[in-house]
């Protein structure tokens, strides 16, 4: 692990008209780390993801990936460097079967260059590689699920499909925008080991979550946002102990619940 952080945001600011969605946010992620970002609704968590991945341009501030300035680059160029994201509202290709959804990222220049997930992008048959990835991410290979139209899949599978799309690109970082939200308890329970496995594969993760209990299980470090500003940062224990976090967060009930749990 090098001393340089893999991703660094400096004074990141985004204004929508007069509203400051992000106000001078500084943070960094080290290689192989899992950074959790929490905060009440509208605190600018998704805006961070959008600014980093180039889906919106920050008003000011800079984003560095491995020391290289990637601020304001086109979204597909940033994804091409290995900074991938999932969408909070899932964006699969609804008119295609699940495994065909992965043929598209496997066809991308990055997959062709790097070989994609486990070198599969260089193989001729992208359909089979797509199913390999789906099996790894929790689609049952011997069932009909990988062949089903994405439009007919339940939320749990679609969330996995979002992750699978990132994996097909052989990512260095995945920015997960609420992968747990909308899932049942048992679906989340099966998702957590998946996240841990990604971490073991050396993928850096930035996770935006409302499900604090599960997030605290997987995250190395937590950053708390409120009204577009960074409130605090630290391990889950430090963050939970912070009185400002309790104030900012809704009702402070869940925090206490989590504290007793942890």
């Amino acid at each position: 692990m090098s001393d340089q952080p893999i991703l660094e945001a400096k004074e990141l600011t985004k204004a929508f008209g007069g509203i400051l969605a992000l106000n001078r946010v500084n943070f960094h992620v080290n290689e192989g780390e899992v950074l959790g970002i929490i905060g009440p609704n509208g605190s600018g968590k998704t805006t961070i993801v959008n600014c980093i991945t180039g889906f919106i341009k920050p008003t000011s501030g800079k984003v560095f990936f491995r020391g290289k300035n990637i601020t304001g680059k086109a979204a597909h160029r940033i994804a091409d460097m290995g900074v991938t994201r999932t969408f909070q509202i899932m964006r699969p290709y609804y008119s295609l079967p699940a495994y065909k959804n992965l043929v598209i990222p496997l066809f991308s220049p990055r997959s062709k260059r790097t070989g994609g997930w486990r070198g599969g992008g260089k193989l001729g048959d992208r359909n089979t590689v797509g199913i390999d990835i789906l099996e790894e991410i929790g689609f049952e290979r011997d069932s009909r699920v990988p062949y089903k139209m994405a439009a007919t899949l339940p939320t749990g599978y679609l969330k996995r499909l979002e992750l699978a799309r990132c994996l097909a690109l052989k990512p260095e970082i995945i920015l997960c925008d609420e992968v747990f939200s909308g899932l049942s308890m048992s679906e989340i329970a099966s998702m957590v080991p998946l996240i841990e496995r990604l971490q073991m594969d050396g993928i850096t993760l930035i996770m935006i979550e409302h499900r604090l209990r599960e997030l605290f299980r997987v995250a190395d470090r937590i950053m708390v946002m409120n009204f577009g500003e960074k409130l605090t940062e630290g391990t889950s224990e430090e963050v939970m102990a912070d009185s400002r976090v309790k104030e900012a967060y809704f009702g402070s009930e869940e925090i206490e619940e989590v504290m007793t749990y942890a």
Partner: peptide, 24 residues
Amino acid sequence: TDIGLVVRAVKDNDQAVRASGMSV
């Protein structure tokens, strides 16, 4: 073909194509 699939994906969901590292 695979390239045609990408083109169809652009219609379906251009944001996801961008997130897959391809220029829409």
